[in-house]
Design a protein around this nucleic acid. Structure first.
Length: 867
RNA sequence: GGGCCAGUGGUCUAGUGGUUAUGACGCUGCCCUUACAAGGCAGUGGUCGGCGGUUCGAAUCCGCCCUGGCCCACCA
């Protein structure tokens, strides 16, 4: 008998959807577990990393759902921003500037809608339990409205300002970027040694990587520790080509050991230049425009050239005039746009800022009030917060995003902010709340849009009905869990904590769970160019969602995990094992009405498996509470496979044939419990097992809304006895295997030597082992021959500390017979009885005959071959 | 340059002071035992990255170093 994994997955996915198994109930607010699910960016399909991350989140959702929680787990999409704009531009072979703004936005919306449809399907076939009844997308007016209101609130509190100062600018995306969106990439470039001149001919060579900015050189700096400083500081040098007289100053930031130890200060090459310009109050001379071309300041034929070309031309010019001493290759880190990887420039253009710098402490206070999983991820947030130097620039010069809801007066620059009641508004279309500025000037709608993190950073506010339903908000905020990947700590996590704390005075979530990245099978990052990209949908179609989810379950939280195909294969096997075990148990229960009652008498083997079950329930539950799903999965799997299936089932088959109520009760309880423990991880096969064999007895509609198993209790002494019985069976099996005896062949006689009295377990032992004559030899029938002694380190160490070595040595070197005989040694004037601190190993002779002994931890089984 | 994480049989991996270091994959041998041969049983295989320290005892704690990954950082 078999089953078809693909078929049953599709079947249950449709059924869950039709029956709304995962629906959040807004009426039941006492026991909510809410997940601030990351809205999936709607630029394309899911890759294996997404699939794994969302599956981890799904584990949390399903685990808490089985605790009777009303789980809030929205299906949601992030639909704003540059990547979608870029995909659309590529798809239609145009740029956004070539087409009417609102027309372009429409194209972006359409593009995103298609992706949302496909990704929704992908979430479904992965078995994710997101609830479509609380669907949202960040570009919808209902969401953008809230983005705007949240901005207006902060604006009204004076936390928003318009500033004209240098900002990160991506010449390709043609927009401002926040520091968080700048990534640093190593790049090879040339350090050029250029001759400057002094009036007296003193040789002054300056090394620079950006000769194209020579026109804006306004000052030269040298380290005060430099030997030449005395001679140079305060004098003027003349720049090459442009022949500009510039002052030489001493500045401690200059490293005397880099280049020539002399720096030209330009506006604006990098952040150092910015600092110096402020420090020395220099003019901002802008050599590079918004599109990355040189401005008229640079003159000559350089004007209008793109930066890299201008650099080459400038170097040509310098070198043909003999002004270049030499050039060397160096590697430097340059800031690049996180989206398109184009090198960033600093430019000056008025932008909107949200005050961030004053709230660093507040953010960390909120962060410290959350539980971080894993804990060390909090350090990354702290590092980022500590390193912040600028307020957050929230305006972008793009189209497909939430409009900034304000108008500005043409005449006096006064800002008129939108009324909250009017939101959502688009100032490029909608009329302002007042016809004219108070000065009488016309109001112009703001054409800038928000950084997309302005939208996503209020997801906890959106989810909890902030400003829409106070009752729901009070019940739902803060949310239970923020799951996310560690690469967006400085953006999503930081901005969310910042804004939501500012707006509500309270942290946005209680727990935060950080996922790592998924690497290719060889442990390196996946890249399309390397051909090592794993397509989750392909894996899923071949092996099924449960198998892929089994891989996901084996990924440790917070760590980068390589994709392991063999885990997928093992997942398939685990599904089969679970199905077969459940089928055996289900068939055994056939004819039974309702759930089997716990009989007053259970056999020791029942107590044993129940004790193991309690242990696994306890460990799995504790692990899931801390989002260590890999641990829970491993525990449950080990129990199912190596305790329940390999041992217990074999031990009680003979009792099942006789419909023993104790065996049936135990099988039912442990079997069902195991299905439940595995249900969050492998939702399809467990639902199949539940519906086929357990539902009629327990009665829950679906395993996923049934109750998480609890510890049932057991008799510890009986459990120990049961464990001994299980060891006898294993020993007999091993002995048969080693001696070429067929497993179903009866054993004529066998003896058991054990400190545990198993005389009331005869049928428990003979049943599974087919021993015909089971004996419990008394001590005088057995001759034990000591063969060695092992020190009990855990006793000796704490008691004798520094003298432990003497006792250990004595036990190891003494004749074991003498140790049994009560040999003592003198330790610091005290007599120590060695046998109290040693385990004696013995070989056994039974009735004078040479016998095979199979040693287990609790029992020794004496066996003789039938001749 | 700073920070974080990791380094355990051929491969992947569990294990935050106490007998003989866990399990999986692989490999070898045996077994169709009536839930499962994509299964079971047994075996093979490890100087726990290196050096030093603390301790009666270290894969585990401390220090230094090496290797890999990630995050952060202005070297013009």
């Amino acid at each position: 008998m078999g089953y078809d994994q693909k078929d049953l997955e599709a079947r249950w996915q449709d059924w869950w959807e039709a029956e709304e198994i995962y629906r959040f109930d807004p009426e039941k607010l006492e026991n909510v577990y809410s997940i601030d699910n990351p809205p999936r960016y709607a630029s394309g399909g899911l890759h294996i990393g997404h699939a794994t991350h969302y599956t981890h989140i799904d584990f949390a959702a399903r685990y808490h759902r089985m605790h009777g929680n009303n789980v809030f787990f929205p299906l949601c999409f992030d639909v704003n921003g540059i990547p979608i704009e870029e995909r659309v531009e590529r798809k239609y072979g145009l740029t956004r500037k070539e087409i009417e703004r609102h027309e372009f936005v429409k194209m972006c919306e359409e593009f995103a809608e298609n992706n949302i449809g496909e990704m929704t399907r992908q979430f479904k076939i992965l078995g994710e339990s997101m609830d479509p009844s609380i669907f949202y997308q960040t570009n919808a007016e209902y969401y953008r409205r809230l983005t705007q209101i949240s901005f207006i609130r902060l604006f009204d509190r004076g936390l928003v300002y318009k500033g004209e100062r240098p900002i990160n600018w991506c010449p390709r995306c043609m927009t401002a970027m926040a520091d968080a969106e700048v990534e640093h990439r190593p790049r090879k470039t040339q350090l050029n040694y250029i001759h400057f001149s002094l009036d007296d001919g003193f040789p002054l060579v300056i090394a620079t990587t950006r000769p194209e900015l020579l026109a804006t050189c306004q000052m030269i700096a040298i380290s005060p520790d430099d030997d030449r400083a005395d001679k140079l500081v305060g004098r003027k040098a003349t720049t090459p080509i442009y022949n500009r007289e510039v002052e030489i100053v001493a500045d401690e930031k200059v490293d005397p050991n880099f280049g020539t130890g002399v720096v030209m200060i330009c506006s604006i090459g990098d952040r150092d230049d910015l600092e110096w310009i402020n420090k020395y109050d220099l003019n901002l001379e802008i050599a590079i425009d918004e599109s990355g071309h040189m401005t008229d300041i640079v003159g000559y034929e350089l004007e209008g050239m793109e930066v890299p070309r201008a650099r080459i031309v400038m170097l040509d010019r310098l070198s043909s005039s003999g002004l270049i001493e030499r050039a060397e290759d160096i590697e430097q880190n340059v800031g690049a746009c996180w989206r398109c990887h184009h090198p960033m420039e600093f430019i000056v253009k008025p932008q909107w800022f949200l005050k961030t710098m004053p709230f660093k402490e507040q953010v960390m206070e909120a962060a410290n009030d959350m539980r971080w999983f894993p804990e060390f991820m909090k350090i990354r947030l702290k590092d980022w917060v500590d390193s912040l130097q600028w307020d957050w620039v929230v305006s972008r010069q793009r189209y497909f995003a939430t409009p900034i809801p304000l108008w500005e007066c043409e005449e006096c620059g006064e800002v008129v902010i939108a009324r909250e009641d009017d939101c959502y508004v688009d100032p490029t279309i909608d009329t302002p709340p007042q016809a004219k500025c108070s000065c009488g000037g016309s109001l112009i709608g703001c054409e800038d849009v928000f950084d997309t993190w302005m939208d996503s950073s209020i997801s906890p506010l959106y989810n909890t009905f902030w400003e829409r339903d106070e009752k729901l908000f009070n019940a739902l905020y803060p949310m239970s869990l923020r799951p996310q990947a560690h690469d967006i700590i400085r953006t999503w996590a930081f901005y969310t904590i910042l804004r939501d704390t500012l707006l509500t005075g309270e942290k946005p979530f209680k727990d935060i769970m950080m996922d790592g990245f998924i690497l290719s099978e060889d442990g390196t990052p996946m890249h399309a160019s390397k051909g090592n990209v794993i397509d989750p949908i392909g894996v899923l179609e071949e092996h099924g969602a449960d198998a892929l989810r089994y891989y996901a379950a084996n990924c440790a939280l917070g760590e980068d995990n390589a994709f392991r195909m063999k885990d997928v294969t093992r997942g398939t096997r685990l599904c089969r094992k679970l199905f077969n075990v459940s089928s055996f148990i289900g068939n055994s229960l056939e004819g039974l009405e309702g759930a089997p009652e716990r009989p007053s008498e259970l056999r020791p083997t029942d107590h044993w498996i129940l004790s193991e079950f309690d242990a696994v329930v306890s460990k799995a539950t504790a692990s899931c509470e801390e989002y260590r799903f890999d641990v829970a999965m491993r525990e449950a799997e080990y129990f199912l496979w190596h305790q329940l299936a390999d041992h217990y089932l074999e031990l009680i088959k003979h009792r099942v044939r006789e419909n023993d109520p104790a065996a049936l009760y135990t099988l039912y309880t442990v079997g069902l419990g195991t299905v439940k423990l595995i249900a969050p991880f492998l939702p399809h096969i467990t639902e199949e097992c539940y519906q086929s064999w357990y539902k009629d007895h327990e009665g829950a509609k679906s395993v996923h809304v049934s109750s998480w198993p609890v510890e049932l209790g057991f008799d510890a002494d009986a459990a120990k006895k049961g464990e001994a019985v299980s060891q006898v069976a294993a020993a007999v099996r091993r002995w048969k295997s080693e001696n070429g005896v067929a497993l179903n062949q009866p054993v004529e006689t066998a003896g058991i030597v054990s400190e545990i009295d198993l005389s009331d377990c005869i049928s428990d032992i003979t049943g599974p082992t087919s021993i015909q004559d089971l004996q419990f030899p008394s001590s005088d029938e057995i001759e034990t021959k000591p063969t060695g002694a092992k020190p009990k380190f855990d006793l000796i160490g704490p008691e004798f500390r520094g003298d432990a070595g003497m006792i250990i040595g004595a036990i190891q070197s003494e004749d074991p017979v003498a140790i049994i005989g009560g040999r003592t040694i003198d330790v610091g004037g005290k007599e120590v009885v060695l046998k109290d601190y040693a385990d004696i190993q013995v070989s056994t002779v039974y009735k004078g005959e040479a016998v095979d002994t199979e040693e287990e931890e609790l029992v020794t089984v004496i066996l003789t071959k039938n001749e």
